[in-house]
Amino acid sequence: MPKHSFLLNGERVTVDVDDDVRLLWVLRDVLGVTGPKYGCGINVCKACTSHVNGRAFNPCSVKVSALDRDDEITTIEGLPGTAPGPGLHPMQEAWIDRDVAQCGYCQPGQVMAAVALVRQVRREGRSITDADLDGIRNICRCGTYARIREAVRQGEAAM
């Protein structure tokens, strides 16, 4: 079987799996990394949102063979490691402080999307607007959207 190798949360991993298996299943079923959740499998619900080289992406819609050896994948489990100092990432702290989660199923994806959004607006030399918040595509079926909006802004300020 073909071998695939990439960086996951700061460590090199190598897996033996068919080329076209989507990365979400490599993470969850092969590597046991279950932070990214399944909610649709078709790049719509954003529950699986993680980072590739610091930018948001949906591993349910990427073949494992599409990754390069040097691609750095960060899941929610690796997010604290991308922020300075010990403890959680400031966006996670904002989420806890704002008591956002209800069932929690969407929340790893929401936090990863929020961090990527802050990085993106910073690259554009600006800060988050209402339109940016409207543009967050992650579904929360528990309807935690109002607190997500507050937490993103609080996390942005702390990042």
Binding site: T34, G35, P36, T75, I76, E77, P80, L88, Q92, W95, I96, D97, D99, V100, A101, Q102, G104, Q107, P108, V111
Partner: peptide, 12 residues
């Protein structure tokens, strides 16, 4: 706050 808030946002 929710007692499981930390677990929920760390993927645990």
């Amino acid at each position: 706050n929710r007692t499981d808030a930390r677990k929920a946002v760390t993927g645990r």
